[in-house]
């Protein structure tokens, strides 16, 4: 029984990592109807920005929660800039073109970042400095919880609520929803659409940056291709939850984390990835709008 609950905890903490990445995916899709495949590479860049910042200031010498916050802010800011640059130079010139062009460009940007990363950072995995080590282990009668993973789960939920607030409670959010509804009408109403889209990318990328730092801390091995698998899984999570829906992304991610955990625990570990993508196919077949999504007519 202890093992069962341990599996639940493991699954939820794995899911909360997917959730952090899925949030950015779903947000950009919600506004732009563009699947930003470069998102998982922004996440990788976030991990590396965190890595170099920690190394430069030798933050692993005296680990503290402040260090983590500091590195996270630097990585989020850096990723926001990267997100802005990607949008400005890769996606904006294609604004008028059909959706498929932007999609292919997204794949191109993703590959470009992966392999520039290999050139710039080197292809060998790097050890992530331990800039924050929460005291001890939390254990309840044989049940082990890594405090770091609890922090990741809390941060994922906080960021989800923050995003909900931005989208539904602020002027920027209203503008985002207007742009998502109809870009041309929004422009006619005087909404600076380019600015809103840039802001969307920057917020989404900052989320990926935060995810990169947190994941680097939990699984202290980072390399330029680290974004590929989690990125795909987060994409699946976003689709399962209903792409474009912020709460759906988190629910989809937790569900994916749990199902992966249980496949490994009670089935065969080799089926782990097969399950994630099998789930994607099933959802697309039977509920293409996702668990939480509304049934919108597709514009593509």
């Amino acid at each position: 029984m202890i093992d069962f609950f341990q599996h639940v905890i493991n699954g939820l903490s794995l899911g909360s990592i997917y959730a952090l990445i899925a949030l950015g995916y779903t947000m950009v899709y919600g506004v732009l109807r563009l699947i930003n495949f470069a998102h998982s590479e922004v996440y990788m860049m976030g991990a590396f920005i965190g890595y170099y910042t920690s190394r430069m200031f030798q933050l692993d010498q005296n680990p503290s929660f402040m260090n983590l916050l500091l590195v996270m802010i630097v990585a989020m800011a850096g990723c926001a800039v990267i997100g802005f640059v990607i949008e400005r130079f890769a996606y904006r010139p294609l604004r008028g073109a059909s959706g498929i062009n932007a999609l292919i460009t997204a794949v191109g940007v993703s590959l470009f970042l992966q392999f520039s990363g290999q050139l710039g950072f080197g292809a060998d995995p790097k050890f992530y400095p331990q800039i924050y080590q929460p005291a001890g282990e939390w254990s309840v009668g044989g049940l082990q919880v890594n405090p770091l993973q609890m922090i990741v789960a809390v941060i994922a939920v906080v960021l989800m609520l923050l995003l909900q607030y931005i989208i539904f409670g602020t002027r920027l959010g209203r503008a985002m929803r207007a742009v998502s509804f109809s870009r041309d009408t929004a422009r006619l109403m005087g909404i600076p659409t380019d600015l809103v889209i840039s802001a969307t990318f920057m917020i989404g990328s900052a989320l990926a940056g935060a995810a990169g730092v947190l994941v680097g801390l939990i699984y202290p091995k980072i390399d330029p291709l680290m974004g590929v698998m989690p990125g795909l899984k987060a994409f699946v999570a976003a689709v399962v939850g209903g792409i474009g829906n912020v709460v759906g992304a988190v629910i989809g991610a937790l569900l994916l984390g749990l199902s992966e955990e249980f496949v490994v625990a009670f089935g065969r570990s080799t089926f782990r990835d097969a399950l994630a993508f099998g789930l994607l196919i099933l959802i697309l077949l039977f509920r293409p709008q996702g668990l939480m999504g509304q049934n919108l007519r597709e514009k593509v």
Partner: peptide, 8 residues
Amino acid sequence: VDFKAQLT
């Protein structure tokens, strides 16, 4: 990178 399911 996550081996906790197997290890549990």
